[in-house]
Simulated scan of single mutants.
Amino acid sequence: MTAFPCKLAVLVALVLSAGAAVAPARAQSAVADGQKLAFDRGKGNCLTCHVIKGGDLPGTIGPELRDLKTKYPDRSELTAIIFDETKRNPQTMMPPFGRNRILTEQEISAIVDFLQTL
């Protein structure tokens, strides 16, 4: 009767460790997706206005995007800026990517994942 709990514990440990191994891969994928969107001239288009390390032909209208995890440790603030910066700064030139449905919430989240690595 004691063998069953031991087998169950081993099974649970295996499932949890498999899930833990998948999580970093998903996070890496989200960062890569976010970079692709940020550099995509037709979608996120962040390089039109911002200097971003690794990007070609950056603009200078907006601030350089670096050290954002330090500047915005709570990702919800950075997400809100991308979703609709006009709420915080009505005079901004930044498009409201979420409000205008230029980017989905999932795409904005991926971009935030990427920006927090800079």
Rank of each mutant, 00 (worst) to 15 (best):
K43A: 14
S17A: 13
G44V: 01
D74Y: 03
G34Q: 08
L57A: 15
A23V: 12
K43Y: 03
S17P: 00
T48R: 13
A80Q: 05
L14W: 06
G55H: 09
I82S: 02
P73D: 04
Q28H: 10
K36S: 14
L37F: 06
V12M: 10
S29H: 13
K36M: 11
D67F: 10
R75W: 02
P63K: 13
H50N: 11
N89R: 08
L65Y: 10
D74E: 13
V22T: 07
L57S: 15
I61W: 11
L57T: 14
A38C: 06
K71V: 15
D67K: 15
L78E: 06
V22M: 12
A23M: 12
P90V: 05
K87R: 15
G54K: 07
D84F: 08
K53C: 00
H50A: 08
E77Q: 11
A32Y: 01
C49N: 09
D67T: 09
A80V: 03
K87I: 03
V12S: 08
L11N: 02
V22P: 02
C49P: 05
A32G: 03
G54N: 07
L11P: 00
T79C: 00
T86K: 14
E77T: 13
E85D: 14
G19A: 12
R41I: 14
A18I: 06
A20S: 07
L65W: 08
G19S: 12
K36N: 14
V15F: 10
A30K: 04
D74K: 02
L57P: 00
K69H: 14
G19D: 05
F39K: 02
C46N: 07
K71P: 00
V15Q: 04
G59L: 13
L47D: 00
P73F: 04
G42D: 12
D67W: 10
A18P: 01
A30T: 02
L78F: 13
R26W: 01
N89F: 06
P24K: 07
V10Q: 06
V51D: 06
K53G: 09
A80D: 12
A38T: 02
A23N: 07
V22E: 06
V31L: 02
D56E: 14
A80P: 00
L68A: 03
A25F: 09
D40Y: 05
K43W: 01
I52H: 07
D56S: 14
A25I: 03
V12K: 01
